[in-house]
Amino acid sequence: MSISSTTAKMSSKLLSQLESSIDLSKTSLLLSLASIVFNPTAWNIVARNEYSNKTITRLFGGNAKYGCYFLAVLIFLFGVLRDHLYQQALLEQPKISILPEQYATIVPVALFVLGQIFVMTSTYALGITGTFLGDYFGILMDHRVEGFPFNVLRDPMYVGSTMCFAATALWYERPAGLIITAYVYVVYIIALRFEGPFTDMIYSRRAEKAKAN
């Protein structure tokens, strides 16, 4: 048997497995994917506009902290909606055993708990304004946070969130959820490519102004 025919058979088998594990016809799946990409995209656009035009700050009479808190509430609520849509999407996808029975509970629970630890400790370390794009409102941190979990991961909040997506997929035994988790990871990587350099620019400008003064 030639290499090309073997490769074709393997590809055909893989496609068949994917087709049996994910139902692309479900509207809930499309809504979940849309919400996953909407959130980081929307908040990056809103935050950049805030940095340039102070739109939200002006809505709160020039109080940047209130404006940041308002955005934090929006981000939190849309995050809850995203998680709900993800759960609904999973429930309408094919259920297939993923892990051996003895690990089917402990692995997703451990993964979810660890992911939540990364998310919650990141929020605690950064504070509300540090977590929810306060930099774009002109609310800058005095120094870089280097304690846990930032001494373990560069982007612990995004990593922790991705781990929770994977844990949920394993808990409900939906292989489609693992595919969505990979999609989440790619979306986060793209978002960080825009968010990271812009945040670095904000702090660089502050450092330049401090030197000038």
Rank of each mutant, 00 (worst) to 15 (best):
E50F: 10
L114W: 04
D155W: 05
Y185V: 11
L90G: 02
L81F: 13
G61I: 03
L81V: 15
V80I: 15
V46K: 02
G130K: 00
M10V: 13
N44T: 08
M157C: 05
L178W: 10
K54C: 06
M163N: 02
A64P: 09
S32E: 03
R205P: 03
L133E: 07
F76C: 12
T129L: 00
Y51P: 00
L192K: 12
S122V: 03
Q17E: 10
Y183W: 14
F148A: 02
F150D: 00
M157K: 09
T57I: 02
W43E: 05
F70E: 02
F118K: 01
T6K: 15
L29C: 11
S32I: 01
E195G: 09
L133T: 02
N53S: 13
I190F: 13
T168V: 11
V184K: 03
L140I: 10
K209A: 15
E195I: 08
I22S: 04
F70V: 03
E146F: 00
I96W: 09
S11N: 11
A182N: 11
L192I: 12
K65A: 14
K13C: 08
Y103N: 06
K9I: 03
P94S: 05
S161P: 00
I106W: 02
S12I: 03
Y136C: 01
I22R: 03
R58P: 02
K209G: 10
D83T: 05
F137A: 05
V152Y: 01
D200C: 06
D135L: 09
P108F: 05
C68K: 02
I180D: 04
W171E: 04
A167S: 15
E19A: 15
A42W: 09
N151K: 10
M120K: 12
A212R: 12
T162S: 14
N53T: 07
T162E: 07
L114G: 04
S5C: 01
A167Y: 08
T121I: 01
S16N: 14
T6N: 15
L126V: 02
G160L: 01
G130I: 02
Q88V: 00
P100V: 00
K9F: 04
L99A: 05
S16D: 13
S12P: 06
S97D: 12
K26T: 10
A169E: 03
R82T: 05
L85N: 10
S2K: 10
F78M: 14
K209Y: 14
L15V: 07
E92C: 06
Y172F: 14
I180V: 15
F137H: 11
I128H: 06
F148Y: 11
L14V: 15
G160S: 07
F198W: 11
P175M: 08
A212I: 01
A89G: 10
Q93H: 03
R58S: 13
L91P: 04
M157T: 06
C164T: 13
A34I: 14
F60A: 06
Y86D: 01
R206P: 11
P156L: 00
N63E: 13
F165R: 00
S21Y: 01
Q93M: 06
